[in-house]
Amino acid sequence: MATQDLCRGSRAGTMMAIYRRGLFASRPVRAGERVLEISLDLMIAPSDLPGELSTVLSSTVKPWTKLALIVLMERYKGQAKLQSSAWAPYISCLPEPAELDNTFLWEDTELSYLRASPLYGKTRERLEMITTEFGQVQNALDVWPQLFGKVSLEDFKHVYATVFSRSLAIGEDSTLVMIPMLDFFNHNATSFAKLSFNGLLNYAVVTADRDYAENDQIWINYGDLSNAELALDYGFAVPENPYDEGSKTTSWFSCVPGSSTANRDA
């Protein structure tokens, strides 16, 4: 993995207090240099769900839900000290529930601050969708406690937040995958660096869009996302977001106790 010699992870307080995690250059990096290269066989895809589970799930179960089930299984393996997979180091680095701040995880009293914003309705819609998906897989969760442990709707909401903010479609068939290490890059709306996928060689790559000095944080751009979209899908908002088009989402988001206008738990 190219990241191993270019970047190192950092938690809150080690480099920049407003970021819980990020990737920082361990040596100078030049614009155009690859800072991440991940092979397809290291990515987590819905097809990695065990066959016995796939056969009992409804055909309407969404790909992200299957990814959520995989993450739940991997986490339970770690908690129960069962045999772990090659993804264990990555899964162990995913954020804990208390570190997630997506609006659909807020308490009703917190969410009421957004009642005048379109984000309120979108959050309610997302909650309804997550609840529906949980209902579709609840039987599998109940039948195989040895795979998942005990999973509540709240647990499922948190793993949904983890998966949805860390999965993306790749390839001609738009396969939804989680790419280890990619999600440790923090978002910068001014960055031109984005993930690209080489379908011929089957690997994903991120190329630096600027020069970085040693210890600089390396950024990518999650997309042309408004603060409402960032708050819903990633759990943060950014000041002076160029994609907000005059929206007041940042001021609504920042006035809620405990919310974050800095950046997400990458």
Score class of each variant (00 low, 15 high):
227 N>F: 11
11 R>I: 09
246 G>M: 08
159 V>F: 00
79 Q>M: 02
34 R>Y: 02
40 L>C: 13
168 L>E: 01
17 A>I: 11
216 D>Y: 11
242 P>M: 08
217 Q>T: 08
142 D>I: 03
248 K>H: 12
26 S>W: 01
168 L>P: 03
265 D>H: 07
74 E>T: 06
88 A>P: 11
185 F>P: 13
258 G>T: 03
264 R>M: 08
256 V>S: 00
236 F>N: 05
113 Y>C: 02
94 L>D: 07
25 A>F: 05
69 L>Q: 02
194 K>S: 14
35 V>A: 00
87 W>I: 09
146 Q>G: 08
159 V>H: 00
191 S>H: 06
168 L>W: 00
209 D>C: 10
82 L>T: 04
263 N>D: 13
80 A>R: 14
129 M>V: 05
112 S>W: 05
181 M>T: 10
168 L>V: 04
117 S>L: 09
18 I>Q: 05
153 L>K: 04
7 C>W: 05
82 L>M: 12
17 A>H: 08
53 L>C: 00
25 A>E: 09
200 L>N: 13
229 E>Q: 15
17 A>E: 13
118 P>I: 07
35 V>W: 01
6 L>G: 00
21 R>W: 14
153 L>W: 08
223 G>R: 09
264 R>P: 01
17 A>F: 14
161 A>R: 06
221 N>I: 06
33 E>N: 11
119 L>P: 13
230 L>F: 10
238 V>C: 12
78 G>H: 05
47 S>M: 01
110 E>V: 01
237 A>K: 09
221 N>T: 13
127 L>M: 15
4 Q>I: 12
175 T>N: 13
216 D>P: 10
125 E>T: 09
224 D>G: 08
19 Y>K: 07
185 F>W: 06
121 G>Y: 03
80 A>H: 10
236 F>K: 03
153 L>P: 03
221 N>G: 11
178 M>Y: 07
256 V>C: 03
181 M>L: 11
66 K>C: 06
223 G>M: 12
80 A>S: 15
64 W>H: 08
103 T>K: 03
205 V>A: 12
115 R>Q: 15
262 A>Q: 13
74 E>I: 07
256 V>M: 03
260 S>I: 02
242 P>W: 15
21 R>Q: 14
215 N>K: 04
230 L>G: 08
43 M>W: 05
153 L>S: 01
120 Y>P: 02
246 G>A: 04
88 A>Q: 12
95 P>A: 11
81 K>V: 03
83 Q>I: 02
218 I>P: 02
22 G>Q: 08
35 V>D: 00
29 V>Q: 07
32 G>V: 06
144 W>Q: 05
71 V>Q: 07
99 E>M: 15
256 V>F: 02
214 E>A: 07
57 L>F: 00
28 P>S: 14
229 E>C: 10
179 I>F: 10
187 H>T: 02
76 Y>D: 03
148 F>I: 07
66 K>Q: 13
30 R>F: 03
93 C>R: 14
152 S>C: 14
237 A>N: 09
207 T>Q: 15
78 G>M: 14
193 A>H: 01
214 E>Y: 05
114 L>D: 01
245 E>I: 03
114 L>M: 10
176 L>E: 13
56 V>G: 00
2 A>E: 14
